[in-house]
Design a protein around this nucleic acid. Structure first.
Lengths: 167, 167
DNA sequence: GCCGGAATGTTATGTTATAACAGCATCATG
DNA sequence: CATGATGCTGTTATAACATAACATTCCGGC
């Protein structure tokens, strides 16, 4: 019954990934940018969950593919994907999460569940407005924002209270 | 003429430091916590500017004092100071900044100027409210927030436009 | 003096990220 | 086809940030 920004827990993630990947490919083509096999593979790896993954986790996944790239290879691919808005960085975790709506221009604000580990992108006009107003009042020219709210998502709150005892 | 959250540029920083340090000492005493010489010295080092400093910068400063502590010493002191609210962590920079109002309970939201490097703490009820409302709508139980807005502070905007040409 | 807990010291290592340069692929153009 | 420009990837090395695990010391209360 929650109006959660998180994906429904048992959603069809295969379809979710496939569609997002297709969207990224279309966007890259439109922009004349090259979503090379390596970049595409890195994006797939990050898309595999709705949880932030570390650069070295990506490195590990590539290693399991058989390639044995060094860190710069991964960081370069991630830099490209970030520049395209296909992936966002979670500063409070030194990790990266896929964007599941790369076509929409948006600010990158997140909810991070400490229990299930999922990251949800927030799209909230009132919050955007409040941030803009805060900067304006200080005479500050905002260029980039890091907004990450950590806590418990709706699903995990329910599970936790169910686990403790009375519903 | 800006209502800047940043300190006035040529403020009396000696007094600023001294007062904040005294406030921290009083708070620690009240709480029965021990602001030892090491912790106090680390706090002084972080207080020396309104810019975030890295843990290894602190380490360097301690080394110049003559002590040669290893990283855990610095991280432990910083952990203590953070727990007391005397220092905050800037996630987007892996760095630490002093709190100049440690007695006031507050959420830790920052403006970060990319030109002068200063960090300003934001105290904005409307922003707090918007963040709370965003979480509430998602059924999310917020526990900690990282809010860091990077850009140009009012002083640096003026300098930059002055530098370019017409005032 | 002695004990217990907190603080600090010490050693080693884990984790995240980038600099610098080499090699190779792709493609437009002569 | 040769050529050179550009951009992508590979490789080596190292920088920057952070913590685990255990030893020692400090300090107050008894």
């Amino acid at each position: 019954m929650s109006t959660s920004a998180f994906p429904l827990s048992p959603h069809n993630h295969q379809a979710c990934m496939r569609e997002t990947l297709a969207e990224a490919e279309a966007l890259a083509a439109t922009r004349g940018e090259r979503l090379t096999p390596l970049r595409r593979r890195v994006l797939e790896i990050v898309l595999e969950s709705h949880r932030p993954v570390g650069a070295y986790d990506v490195l590990g996944a590539l290693a399991r593919d058989g390639a044995r790239p060094a860190p710069p290879t991964v960081y370069r691919a991630l830099d490209f994907l970030r520049a395209q808005g296909f992936v966002h960085r979670i500063d409070s975790r030194n990790a990266f999460v896929a964007c599941f709506a790369p076509a929409k221009a948006h600010r990158c604000h997140f909810l991070l569940c400490r229990r299930c580990g999922r990251a949800a992108e927030i799209l909230d006009a009132a919050l955007d407005q409040a941030l803009a107003e805060t900067a304006r009042q200080a005479g500050f020219a905002a260029e980039r924002e890091t907004v990450e709210i950590a806590g418990l998502c709706a699903d995990c709150r329910e599970d936790a209270s169910a686990g403790v005892g009375a519903a």
